[in-house]
């Protein structure tokens, strides 16, 4: 057997769908397992639509497309319900991430799986919005008082709420990075430049969508789901361009993160670009999957997990948080 299979298999087929023609049965099985693990099976299916593939693969991809379409119907309905609730308290519905891409009909939304409903509201409207959502059937999911207090004190979003009838989660953000992070984006600018993408539904401007994607991936998390995030970035660049991006990123204090996200997205999905040594470490982590879709490269994963906490919190708070979580047995990178 030649070179071991990893996330680059998925990246190369996303970049050049015609490459799928070279795949044999084992290659397809690995590709499908990795795409599922990265929650990109619907995106892959959309990308390969119309291409000649083995009959069994065609069936799997067809199911994935149907499933993604149904998921987007449900996500769009969830947004509509939230729009109605927010309109009662005089707030605009500003959609973030997947739901925004889907409602706006952006390429990044094609086949994309959508989990929670992420929205952005002004910080001074948080209490009103929270009360309105609770009134409309959403309930707390974090029963642990430490977690609840942690969210309210240190996070850029309310503790997640789940709807008791529809079993769907909503994340209400008031900015795009935790207040404890060293970088402080400008939420007023995010809100001010939001654009209407459907009647009564808004999204960040395309440039701010890119800034948000980069912030979420590189200044907040441990790179989990990074292949999907960077596909979003790649599609946004292709569709909306990068004019003014550098300036906008600098305004939010995220010029390094945005530049890196652009380089990483290009390395994975775009035309040949130049990546440095540090970028290669990121790519090593981002593509850490084997042909069973298993998470590989545990040392690198752990390093990025620790880094995510380092970025998110000052050292004293981090120590306290990890201590509390360790005693509760909850901390540690997700395995997959």
């Amino acid at each position: 057997m030649g070179r071991a299979v990893d996330g680059w298999l998925l990246a190369s087929v996303m970049r050049t769908p015609a490459r799928a023609a070279d795949l044999e049965a084992a290659g397809w099985t690995g590709l499908i397992a990795i795409a599922r693990a990265e929650q990109m099976i619907g995106t892959l299916a959309a990308r390969l639509q119309g291409l000649a593939v083995p009959a069994q693969v065609a069936r799997i991809l067809d199911d994935a497309r149907t499933s993604a379409a149904q998921g987007q119907i449900a996500a769009t309905w969830e947004a509509e319900v939230a729009r109605r609730v927010l309109s009662h308290v005089g707030e605009r519905l500003i959609l973030l991430k997947g739901t925004a891409f889907a409602v706006a009909g952006l390429r990044a939304g094609l086949g994309r799986s959508i989990g929670d409903l992420d929205i952005l509201v002004p910080k001074d409207a948080l209490a009103r919005v929270e009360a309105a959502l609770l009134d409309a059937g959403w309930e707390w999911v974090k029963p642990d008082p430490y977690d609840d207090a942690y969210y309210r004190t240190w996070m850029h979003e309310l503790p997640p709420l789940i709807h008791r009838d529809r079993d769907r989660m909503i994340d209400v953000h008031h900015t795009i990075l935790p207040p404890t992070a060293r970088i402080t984006p400008d939420p007023v600018a995010l809100l001010g430049d939001a654009v209407e993408i459907a009647p009564g539904m808004f999204a960040l401007s395309p440039l701010d969508m890119l800034v948000h994607a980069a912030a979420h991936l590189l200044a907040d998390g441990d790179l989990a789901g990074g292949m999907r995030n960077l596909w979003d970035v790649h599609c946004l660049i292709e569709e909306c361009g990068t004019d003014g991006l550098e300036e906008r990123a600098r305004h939010h204090g995220l010029e390094r993160e945005v530049a890196r996200a652009v380089r990483l997205a290009t390395a994975l999905y775009g035309k040949e670009g130049s990546v440095g040594v540090v970028d290669r470490i990121y790519l090593f982590r981002l593509t850490a999957r084997d042909e069973w879709g298993r998470a590989t490269r545990p040392v690198t994963r752990m390093a990025f997990y620790i880094r995510s906490h380092w970025l998110r919190m000052p050292p004293g708070l981090l120590a306290r948080h990890l201590w509390t979580k360790w005693r509760g047995g909850g901390a540690g990178p997700s395995s997959g």
Binding site: A25, A33, P54, A55, Q56, V57, I60, W292, R294
Partner: peptide
């Protein structure tokens, strides 16, 4: 064996 040697699902 699965059609074309390509499984719908993997179990580990």
């Amino acid at each position: 064996a699965p059609h074309g040697g390509i499984a719908d699902f993997s179990v580990r």
